[in-house]
């Protein structure tokens, strides 16, 4: 078995989960986004999105800032430097794997 295929086992499980992968991908393309924007883009329920954001925050991949705009709660998320690095590594692994298996 090739090195690239074996490397798949080391894929970052935090990012690999589809919903979290979508969240991280969206956050990788922007500076910051709020909860409502992420919910609309990912089509996840509030509870589900909140749970995934919590896991990403726990891993140090995103930073969550909770504020208020008037009386409305505002949750702003952005990818940390660690998160960007982890996402880039994840992408590289996947690209290597796809290149290897398509040859």
């Amino acid at each position: 078995m090739s090195h690239e295929l074996l490397g798949l086992g080391d894929l970052d499980r935090i990012i690999h989960e589809p919903a979290r992968l979508l969240i991280v991908t969206i956050l990788s393309t922007v500076e910051k986004a709020d909860f409502l924007f992420l919910q609309r883009e990912t089509k996840l329920t509030k509870g589900n999105l909140s749970a995934h954001l919590g896991k990403l925050e726990e891993a140090g991949y995103i930073k969550i800032e909770k504020t208020f705009k008037g009386k409305l709660p505002l949750t702003i998320c952005n990818l940390t430097a660690n998160g960007r690095k982890a996402f880039e590594q994840y992408r590289q692994r996947l690209i290597q794997f796809i290149d290897t298996t398509s040859k």
Partner: peptide
């Protein structure tokens, strides 16, 4: 916009 579809800041500095 932001109250309806959410806040997003596009570019990094």
């Amino acid at each position: 916009t932001y109250p309806r579809t959410g806040y997003v800041e596009l570019n990094s500095p």
